[in-house]
Design a binder for these strands. Structure first.
Lengths: 266, 266
DNA sequence: CAGTGGTCTAGACCACCGA
DNA sequence: CGGTGGTCTAGACCACTGC
């Protein structure tokens, strides 16, 4: 906003607080403040600005790049990652969206409910008082004409009120939450359970009878504050959790091919 | 074995093949050959041996440490990680074992089957001919007196023959596989599905009726070669997959507290 | 071409840990 | 205490990208 230039920034050279960590925190704050939407500074620029060695800059940048917050590569000018690029690292629910998109299938949603509610249990999970108004969205997610998941979301009304008039049928919730409300999810915790859908749920999801499903519960956070409670039911006959390529311990929720090749109940 | 000292080792200084990557590969090989069981060299020792800068050594070591193959920390002499410490990074099945152990519960198994079989489907998954003899182990895993998981494993008999006389009731399969057969799992791919156990499976696992379960299928590899096919059924009313702390996209299979606090079928 | 990051060197000081 | 890794500097050369 001010546009002022400070030649050097406030890095304290003292033990116990490495320069690269301080720099990392400062860069995080500036990313949060959208100071870099017009382009992220190169390593040498940061060396100059903060008066540290390039090695120190690279130590801080390595973290930001691993987190996917900044995209940088040899030759290209570096840039801040788009929310969507960050979100892909946020767990099973995102890989659900991506996995379906990766197969070139059209995704849409049938909105079953979009209203303001009060729910003491959900509010508690969000760390809010039990009477806090919440925007509640319930939708059935489809690929083509086939139901894939039943998605139930609660957001604090304080943040999410603009979404009450939004059209969720074609767009990602995260995208709308970011664009209309300025809330970008940066972190989250998920819990995944195998469940047997209730008859009502099964009617919505379709599929063979006695099919189990994934129950995914998720607390989404932005800058450390809870901003989303989500409970999604994913059809178990169409999706599997598979280890991520690198064997890093990560998992992806992947759409199974229509011909369930191997049931492998050997 | 030889005890010979080569002052410098074969690192080629040429573009397109960074020194730290070459060093990383050499160290991997030496780890595979158990050259470091009596202690892993420090950074300065590697600087001297390979005639590269400490920075280069650290670049290679960073990878080995992130992979958990080497344990190193300020002050302490570095060392090669034990198989168990590596295995903890090998997916949901290991965290099952650890999660139960972490709660201080006694783990044991009831062996239901331990014999040599031929199974064309499983053999194919292991990349073997359909008549290849396999060691098959089926066991019910318990914590205290309560069944937790039904575990079915197939191993190539060529590797696993010594296990036919082993006692699995108290010890981890991975530990025995490593100790008796010299096979240390280094990698693996898993697929996790929600399923409804068959009546027979449900009788073994116990729990409320109409409880869903995790079906975990796993192909375990050692040095790139498949050495294990596994199909485990985990009780869904006692375990959940939860995101790993760092939000790295990883998941752990965690034992739920006996009092299922939040069903959250909101 | 100029600017980017990728790699590498040769030093330095310090904090931590175990003997 | 000596050895470990953690941090930091000031340089250098190169490969890649896009103009």
């Amino acid at each position: 906003m001010t546009g002022e230039r400070r030649g050097t920034r406030e890095l304290r050279r003292e033990p116990g607080s490495p320069l690269w960590q301080q720099l990392l925190e400062l860069l995080r704050q500036r990313l949060d403040n959208d100071e870099f939407t017009a382009g992220f500074p190169g390593e040498l620029a940061l060396v100059e600005e903060y008066q540290v060695s390039r090695h120190t800059v690279r130590a801080a940048m390595q973290v930001l790049r691993e987190e996917g917050l900044v995209i940088a590569g040899r030759g290209r000018p570096p840039r801040q990652a788009e929310p969507v690029e960050i979100a892909r690292r946020l767990g099973a629910l995102y890989s659900l969206y991506e996995s379906v998109r990766g197969l070139g299938l059209e995704q849409r949603s049938v909105i079953r409910c979009l209203e303001v509610q009060r729910d003491a249990v959900v509010a508690a999970r969000l760390g809010l008082g039990e009477d806090t108004p919440l925007v509640h969205l319930e939708r059935l997610r489809l690929a083509g004409d086939e139901p894939l998941a039943l998605d139930r979301v609660w957001l604090p009304k304080v943040l999410a009120a603009p979404l009450l008039d939004a059209d969720f049928s074609r767009t990602s919730l995260y995208e709308l939450y970011a664009r209309l409300c300025g809330v970008v999810l940066t972190d989250g915790r998920e819990q995944i359970l195998p469940v047997l859908p209730t008859p009502a749920e099964h009617r919505l999801l379709g599929g063979p009878r006695d099919t189990a499903a994934f129950s995914i519960q998720r607390l989404g956070q932005a800058k450390g504050r809870p901003v989303e409670w989500r409970h999604t039911l994913v059809r178990g006959d169409r999706f599997a959790l598979t280890t991520a390529p690198a064997g890093t311990g990560g998992y992806r929720l992947e759409l199974l091919s229509p011909t369930r090749g191997g049931d492998a109940r050997s």
